[in-house]
Write a protein that binds this DNA or RNA. Structure first.
Lengths: 114, 114
DNA sequence: CGGCATCCAGTAGGATACTG
DNA sequence: CAGTATCCTACTGGATGCCG
């Protein structure tokens, strides 16, 4: 840990920028979060639909990432009191506001990977 | 590992999307990469300037993340044959093309963190 | 059906000291 | 000035099995 730059007048704005980006990347940056979010932009989905549409994900990881997305307020978990049980996930307004960002991340990646 | 969904006609596009997002998030998603990239959007910077403007980063982590950004073709490392040595970093064209994405990530984060 | 519990491996990231 | 080298921790993600 070194001394911080106290003379750079742009520092506070930069820190805001850093924090903003960190917050966003933390919200969407999990191993399976982009896949989940992108599928939900097409509409409500059941747990089993998500599980079957995302290749190679384990149930443990799927649930963990769903819980984080829920905690961060990006998705809503809807439990139907039925037998057999049914659970659906859908984007919240906050989650929906990510749409353009998800698209641009995807577009940039498709264009720039070799 | 479970069976994959072979009936979903959207699957190939989804996989492209997933890969695109993963590629982008991998490129910019390191602990210090956003901070580095954002500073370089303001122009060329020396190693010591980066180090001093990013609070709490260790030299080891700074160098590691710079090397990855360089390997991914987002930044260029310019060594001047002087004594004392001088090294500057600047965005490549590929790095510059990230500007709008970095901005939207930052803006979304600033708006949505509590 | 939609999970949770347990255990485990790999790696991202960090502290500290040293160098061409 | 601009890095390496070494060692270490913690967290992410994975395999497997059980449950309401």
């Amino acid at each position: 840990m070194r001394k911080e730059n106290s003379t750079n007048t742009l520092n506070k704005q930069q820190i805001d920028r850093d924090c903003g980006m960190s917050y966003t990347l933390n919200a969407i940056g999990g191993r399976w979060k982009p896949a989940i979010l992108f599928r939900l932009t097409r509409g409500k989905m059941r747990y089993s639909e998500l599980r079957d549409s995302i290749a190679n994900v384990t149930e443990r990881m799927l649930v963990l990432q769903l819980r984080e997305l829920e905690k961060d307020g990006l998705i809503k978990r809807i439990v139907y009191a039925e037998v057999p049980p049914r659970v659906e996930y859908e984007l919240t307004d906050k989650g929906n506001s990510l749409r353009p960002i998800l698209r641009s991340l995807s577009d940039w990646g498709i264009k720039n990977r070799i």
